[in-house]
Design a protein around this nucleic acid. Structure first.
Length: 308
DNA sequence: AAGGGATCCAACCGCTTCGGG
DNA sequence: CCCCGAAGCGGTTGGATCCCT
């Protein structure tokens, strides 16, 4: 069982890279560019698998990498973006020129998580920890009767109320009636299909597509216990996120800095369609919440802007 | 000074997605 | 439409370093 190895492992080095290996890789990419990673090691005279070479280049050797500590602005941007897209590190990295997904992921796990917890914010849901604890308790009891949701990608958010289908084209999305956006992943563990009362209105205008959230933000639902009847305390706790001041001056449009083509295709990712951005239900839900405070629109070329 | 736990981060692993045939 | 290989991605691991006692 299992997959065939990505490369012949018998004669490949593992572990830390030596300076000589780095130099060989850099020299090869300088002269030949980034080509087929699988054949690169042989061509460059490296006893590494292509995957390892790619990682080393992208995460460490790329000349446009910004090294050193994260600035406060970068911190805040990461937090904001994470609240919108979840653990989509490559997407987040695409907004931070010179930073890699791996670096951001590590930084998140070692610094920002702790920082948010200190602020009383759950790093996964971006809700207040009180609300999340309540929700988690309710989720645990709900999960007992719904074992298939145990391994859902974002377990800390109970009963996500909306998912995205495998919409592949702009037309397909537009063709959908408002609010019937659902997603079915092909991962067995994360298979969820949640039918939902209308929450979105998608309006196609001359300026593109506008996504509006109706009456109730999705995040309100997610931050709740998932029960249909809430007691007053739960209602109070449910104010999570709404009370947090989220400065939405960020505009998800073109990158602020020019990136090289080698930059992990970040630029192309920045032009994702909105539904492509939300690869998890909770991400869509979170975005829905943000949308409730902002106008969310796409341009005709498929990029999107989030403005106040 | 030593050693043991905590923290950091580069690298790896395995799964998913994409694109060509 | 299906298959397969390559690339991309996110979670996890493990070694190095730091910090505390």
């Amino acid at each position: 069982m299992g997959r065939s190895p990505c490369c012949e492992k018998a004669h490949t080095n593992k572990g830390a890279w030596t300076k000589e290996e780095d130099q060989r890789l850099v020299d090869h990419i300088r002269t030949h560019g980034e080509g087929c990673w699988r054949s690169l090691p042989k061509a460059a005279g490296l006893l590494r698998c292509g995957k390892s070479c790619r990682l080393r280049w992208i995460n460490y050797l790329r000349p446009d990498l910004k090294r050193g500590n994260f600035s406060k602005e970068e911190d805040e941007l990461i937090i904001k973006l994470h609240s919108m897209v979840g653990n989509k590190w490559s997407l987040i990295a695409g907004r931070l020129p010179g930073r890699t997904d791996n670096e951001i992921k590590n930084y998140w796990n070692t610094h920002i998580k702790r920082k948010l917890i200190c602020r009383g914010i759950d790093p996964q849901t971006h809700c207040s920890l009180n609300a999340t604890a309540t929700a988690a308790a309710a989720s645990a009891s709900a999960t007992n009767s719904q074992p298939e949701l145990k391994n859902s990608p974002v377990p800390s958010v109970p009963n996500p109320e909306i998912t995205l289908t495998n919409l592949r084209t702009n037309e397909e999305l537009m063709a959908r009636p408002a609010a019937s956006i659902t997603r079915q992943t092909n991962t067995a563990n994360s298979h969820m299909e949640i039918r939902n009362a209308p929450l979105y209105e998608i309006a196609i205008t001359s300026r593109g597509m506008e996504l509006k959230v109706r009456t109730e933000s999705i995040d309100e639902r997610n931050c709740s216990s998932g029960l249909t009847i809430e007691d007053p305390q739960q209602q109070q706790e449910r104010t999570c996120e709404q009370n947090q001041e989220i400065n939405l001056e960020l505009s998800i449009g073109l990158p602020s800095a020019t990136r090289t083509s080698s930059a992990n295709s970040a630029e192309s990712k920045l032009r994702l369609l909105p539904y492509q951005l939300f690869s998890t239900p909770v991400a869509a839900a979170r975005m829905g919440s943000l949308c409730s405070k902002s106008s969310f629109q796409t341009s005709k070329n498929g990029s999107f802007d989030l403005t106040n």
